[in-house]
Amino acid sequence: MHQYEKTGILCSKDFQIPTEEQLKKGVAILECVQEIPCNPCVASCPVHAISMKDINAPPMNDFEKCIGCTKCVGICPGLAIFVIKKVGKKAWVTLPYEFVPVPKVGDTVQALDRTGSLRGTALVKKVIKQGKTMVITIEIESTFAMDIRNIRV
């Protein structure tokens, strides 16, 4: 049994992890590890980096092909895709957000990890509306790049 089946929280060995080089380029991390019948991320990818053996297989991202465009972030029905891009000592995390109020570019917000614990503050860099889902890019300390997955406004 996987630990996440008890806790709901994934750890780094559960999903694909890109290399440091790939993180500098900016890539999508697919935190979708179970066999569930769902495939919109595959069709949303403009460079065909995301693939799936069949509709129930977990999606795989070819980090070499992925251009970190963030299109899949607002598409994923499970809100389980995050784009990480390392910029010097900082990292940009792009995440889906479906709460009110919606932050504005330049706002400082609270940065939360997978357990909802406060890990510091983040600066809002981009806010894109994709249907009713907001796709928000925040800037955080690079060391937290693989931990921060939510914000509180």
């Binding site: 008890k6 806790t7 979708c32 994923c76 809100l79 389980a80 357990t115 909802g116």
Partner: peptide, 23 residues
């Protein structure tokens, strides 16, 4: 049950908002 019955993606959404899930 000893495990979460629903999809992990739904559980993860709740957990990162700080809601505990006690199996």
């Amino acid at each position: 049950a000893p495990v979460i019955g629903g999809y992990n993606v739904h559980a993860a959404k709740l957990r990162r908002c700080g809601v505990p899930i006690m199996t």
